[in-house]
Write a protein that binds this DNA or RNA. Structure first.
Lengths: 378, 378
DNA sequence: GTTTGCTCCGAAACCGGTTTCGGCAACTGT
DNA sequence: ACAGTTGCCGAAACCGGTTTCGGAGCAAAC
């Protein structure tokens, strides 16, 4: 398209800023000296450096990032490319996440440039465009996949980036991540403690690395509890309620159904509620479920969903801080942080009231396992 | 703070771009001429203009926005300052909204700079900072208030902006808005048609202009139905479930309680569900409710909430388009658009099964109106 | 007393564009 | 045929910074 016709228009009359020349004039120095003083060059005496800092601060001088960028190539802005389209399970966290990023950025006087994309290819193109236009000095990559094309792209381009989540090949990767595996482990142990023996695990999107980790954590929990894992009790790729409902339905049809479910994703866990209602089973009593994410929808379910909540705001803030340091040249090894999810104990889990056998009978009593119902009249 | 110590760091080695000089060299012209040709100056012959366009396109030339900005002051980026903190009722739409804005922006090769703030003052400061740093050429202002300080600020600064929502003083204001008043009117008429006589209206945040409009629409609906408005059946400032629950509780205690509720905000309407459950009333049968927004939580309520859904993605896209045109100098009069919310008929409304009197008795049968319960055991 | 070596700053080029100004050539009009 | 317009483009200044280079000034070394 190129820029079609006259992008220019009415002149802007904003109050004029103080420029570096204003500062240098006031100090009787050249702008080059002021620049070097402000940017920590060694060939400036301490006395003048301090004088420059003091005066420029007093005058309210703030360098124009795009004026600097013309020479430095850096614009002090973080890039965030959000991909929607498939299943949008990270939407609920977006506000918190953005807020965290924005805070982390503005603390260092950086800004955040966001863009959205529909597909993987679109995402890569958008990243490239932002990079090529120098609209972002580096990128925050949410929802990292086991083998993430964005990582390859940015690694090859030698552009700074930081992952929200870990990935298989850690080369050149800085990250912040929540220890989902630890949460899954604790979920299992909690259910075991409540008396459950048959515990199902419904994992999330298999392309994401978090799935690998959460499964590991779940298996670790079983191991510690001395329970042998049962392949029939492990499902995968459940991120929407429909997916979770399907997985639940399938497992409840087993001759030896699980009395408890661990979901890697809250939204999928909400599907279990539908199935339970369908079968006349009461969640939190006949069926226990613990999930992960802490989406607001879970708090509004009946009973409210017990879940491991992640602090998306903190994640955003840490990611921003890490990325800024990365752009400034720190090695990735120093830029890897993790945090824990926090258990929110609500009403969806508890000691089993039915044995697996009793549950199986209750389920088979319902001749027809209906599909996803419209939601009802009680 | 000023930029503390050396912001600069390892050099960036990205693949080099094609610059305007590359293009002008290839054409045997000066860069000035190329620039003027591309930017629609009149003193360039059509033949060379076309030649320049063709070649620069073929070479993949894309001007660096921040290099242009240094002279033009414009950076081709939209500013969006999100304010969280109080009640975050627009969170659910954020993803859609952002996606729309981003699409609208990138269509014209613009980008989006977002920042967040905690308070009104913080928002104004952030806007000023972005403006002063020239990080945004204009702003999209979501959630406009009746008398909005951001409007004053930007009007005084002669900076371009566009409202998501209308406001009292339309001077210098461009906007996109959904006709909430029309939705409220339709909600009332729908309930009247179903047979309701006593219809309550629970409005949203009174500082926002949408509240003014939605109340007008509601009253208009009553008027058309020949029903006299009852001040006891009008509440305000309900944006969270707690608020909605309180308003519902209060109105149900009336000697002549409403059998139907119109909520200006979905999230507030969800509070009615809690109260209904408390009183043993079935939503959609004993109590009808229609709300507005189309938040995902509403779809997961039992029964699912009938609501007027707004297309946030479209809103974002239109706002971006309008703001770009505004920055380019079009007058605000040409930059005002509206769209309608679409009714999503679900299960929360229907013909009344109880008269107002019967309802009053049913309510008073419950001696104690408990506070917000933890959510129940069926 | 000159040379060497630092420290510290000025001068100027440079980044990638935009915009002003002026002039040449080719048209007009008379 | 000649002055007066245009039309069209080159030259150069400019925007607000960064960065390179070199040299003045001064202290230590020879």
């Amino acid at each position: 398209m190129l820029n079609g016709h006259k992008e220019r228009s009415a002149p802007i009359k904003r109050a004029k800023r103080v420029t570096i020349s204003d500062v240098s004039d006031a100090l009787g120095l050249t702008k080059g000296t002021v620049s070097r003083a402000l940017n920590g060059y060694p060939d400036i005496s301490d006395s003048t450096r301090n004088r420059v800092k003091r005066v420029s601060e007093k005058m309210g001088y703030q360098p124009l990032s795009h004026a600097q960028a013309i020479k430095t190539g850096r614009t002090r802005s973080l890039g965030l490319v959000l991909q929607f389209g498939d299943h949008d399970s990270h939407r609920p966290f977006l506000a918190e996440f953005l807020s965290g990023i924005s805070h982390g950025a503005s603390r260092e006087n950086w800004t955040v440039t966001v863009a959205t994309a529909d597909s993987d290819g679109d995402t890569l193109n958008t990243v490239l465009r932002l990079l090529n236009e120098r609209k972002a000095d580096g990128f925050i990559l949410p929802r990292t996949m086991t083998d993430d094309p964005r990582v390859h792209l940015l690694r090859d381009a030698a552009a700074p980036f930081v992952l929200y989540g870990r990935t298989q090949d850690a080369t050149d990767c800085a990250w912040f991540d929540i220890l989902g595996e630890e949460a899954m482990r604790q979920a299992v142990l909690r259910l075991v403690k409540q008396g459950h023996k048959r515990i199902a695990f419904v994992n999330g999107g298999s392309e994401y690395y978090y799935s690998v980790l959460r499964l590991q954590g779940m298996l670790q929990g079983l191991k510690e509890a001395g329970i042998a894992p049962d392949p029939d009790l492990i499902a995968t790729d459940a991120v929407r309620p429909e997916d979770g409902a399907a997985a639940t339905r399938k497992m409840l049809r087993l001759t030896n159904p699980p009395t408890a479910f661990v979901f890697a994703v809250d939204m999928a866990a909400l599907g279990l509620y539908r199935v339970a209602a369908d079968l006349g089973l009461v969640v939190g009593r006949d069926l226990s479920v613990i999930a992960y994410d802490g989406v607001p929808e879970g708090a509004f379910a009946t009973p409210p969903l017990t879940t491991f909540s992640v602090d998306s705001r903190q994640a955003g803030e840490r990611l921003a801080a890490l990325l800024i340091r990365r752009v400034r040249g720190e090695p990735v090894q120093d830029l890897r942080e993790t945090a824990k999810a926090t258990l929110v104990e609500r009403g969806s889990d508890g000691p089993p009231t039915l044995t697996s056998n009793q549950l199986a009978r209750a389920v088979s009593a319902h001749s027809k396992l209906s599909e996803y119902p419209k939601g009802g009249t009680k």
